[in-house]
Amino acid sequence: MNTFDNSHEIVAAENCLSTTIDGETVVLHTDAGKYYGFNEVGTFVWESLQEPHTVEEVYEAVTDEYDVGYDRCREDVDELLAELADKDLVTVDAE
């Protein structure tokens, strides 16, 4: 499982295509040929990752947009980002 430092920069992998179907974001990993679906908050995070952001910036974007405390947001976002990294859906730049 990946762990992230707040300063790590993270961005959606280039080999992904995404679209919205029936209100759900669907992503195709073109190399793996696998399809993934995001729920609403997952979609918000995924869309924010279309440009490089630090992990801390992702926390801030989510807490600004949604009614959630920082600690829970951090725990949830870390879990999501780790899962995305495991699936090669994001690239992490750990400077």
């Binding site: 669907v26 399809y35 679906g37 989510v62 600004d64 949604y66 009614d67 879990e79 999501l80």
Partner: peptide
């Protein structure tokens, strides 16, 4: 202070 209702972000494995 308009924030949207929060649910934990999820990604599930099943453009076309």
């Amino acid at each position: 202070g308009s924030n949207r209702e929060y649910t934990s972000p999820e990604v599930t494995e099943f453009v076309v």
